[in-house]
């Protein structure tokens, strides 16, 4: 998982549960603002306007645009993977083996494409 690898590279310890918990910062700078923004966009919730305003105020315009771009493009990238059933890369599977089960990833439909599916909870 690139979140862990990029945090390791700067000597930071990341809490990967931030990937699956609401408004968690994961130990990443401004993390809670970023995840709340992503959640509001993906879920199209009523607090999107407030989450966007908070992101813009906290991050400033340049970083805000990058955050919006990341949220946008990953909504496309997940569909590339899930519409083609592309298997995960071997290195990624190895590096996430210790956390996937706990975080629930192995119960998602796409896990079948990588041969690591667990029955849904």
């Amino acid at each position: 998982m690139l979140l862990r690898a990029s945090s390791d590279a700067v000597g930071a310890e990341v809490d990967l549960s931030a990937a699956v918990e609401d408004a968690a910062d994961g130990g990443v700078e401004e993390g809670a603002v970023l995840t709340a923004f992503a959640e509001a966009v993906v879920r199209a919730t009523n607090d999107l306007e407030a989450a966007r305003a908070r992101a813009l105020e906290t991050l400033g315009p340049e970083k805000f645009v990058e955050a919006a771009a990341t949220v946008g493009i990953f909504n496309g990238l997940v569909r590339v993977a899930d519409s083609t059933g592309i298997p995960s890369d071997t290195m990624m599977l190895e590096r996430t083996a210790d956390v996937r089960g706990d975080l629930g990833f192995n119960r998602w439909s796409g896990a079948k494409s990588s041969g690591v599916a667990e029955a849904p909870a």
């Binding site: 979140l3 931030a18 994961g26 700078e29 993390g31 990058e66 990341t70």
Partner: peptide
């Protein structure tokens, strides 16, 4: 890490 946190979420 900020970008990848967004990507992961």
């Amino acid at each position: 890490p900020q970008v990848e946190l967004l990507a992961a979420r």
